[in-house]
Design a protein around this nucleic acid. Sequence first.
DNA 1: AATGAAATCGACCAGCA
DNA 2: TGCTGGTCGATTTCATT
Lengths: 175, 175
Amino acid sequence: MSDSRRTAPDLDETDLALLEQVEADFDVNLETIADELDLSKSAVHYRLNKLKEEGVIQGITADVDPLALGLELTAITDVMVAHERGYSEDIGENLLALSGVEQVYYTMGDVDFVAVSRVQTRDQLNDLIDRIVAIDGVNETSSKFVLGEFENDRAVSSNLTSEAREAVLDGDGSS
Amino acid sequence: MSDSRRTAPDLDETDLALLEQVEADFDVNLETIADELDLSKSAVHYRLNKLKEEGVIQGITADVDPLALGLELTAITDVMVAHERGYSEDIGENLLALSGVEQVYYTMGDVDFVAVSRVQTRDQLNDLIDRIVAIDGVNETSSKFVLGEFENDRAVSSNLTSEAREAVLDGDGSS
DNA sequence: AATGAAATCGACCAGCA
DNA sequence: TGCTGGTCGATTTCATT
């Protein structure tokens, strides 16, 4: 389960602007970013390091196009489990461990888990659903086929409501 | 809608291994990767460039921890729309445009869209759902609260079944 | 597709506001 | 604490094979 970081660091507007930049594209000169933000290269570097150390930036990664690997079929599977025990964590891990499963959410309500999967062929999809059902504790599943995706490029920082932005900037200042 | 690339490039095992590396962590020396793959730095660089040009690598980005921005509440919302027209695309865009919405899937079945959202407070969540319902064409929604996430770090390349790996490596060789 | 050399960029340091 | 400017090592680029 994601259980990242304890300390909520307070960020200023420059940090937010920087995050928006690098969350969209890190494959540029530091100088380009520096110009954009009216900062020196060193200052950008300094802030980036801090953000990494604080865990705000969890990592720098390459984004791979699933279609380029032939993963043309996407499905969303609702998973219902037998509710007796505290096995939720295990079942979540088991779901995620299945190859093809990209993301697993543990949810409140009638549905216990939502899994997003990508595969190449209908056979693989069939097989994957079989493997989900075979997990110990899984009672029932219901899958939706994904016809299209609208993606935000995962831009967390550029996707805040104005209230949310303010709340981020209102650090408690206790550092 | 994601409609990325036309040409399905054929990749070899080195490309796949390289993708797995950089998809997990790009914040390292090229030499580290080169050592890992028994290649020269230049060769690594050459292949990375090719992968970027081919669109296999869509970009290099910083991954920001939503929790660090106070986005502690995640919801998955099923959206049902009025089915008369071909407005699906518009509705998808409208959903994604709402701040707080991170990802939108267009699905087959009883549910037409699935939206994943992140916000800081219950008020923001309430407000977001109101804004979803207010979109023209949206009929009904049903939301699940997310208690936990199991994430694959979005590692597309390291998440292939053995069949899928083989299918990727069986390029048609037409380049 | 891969190499090595030349130009460029980023990481780090000491010092400063 | 956050930033500056400069240095050195690393990376990108390009001509060459």
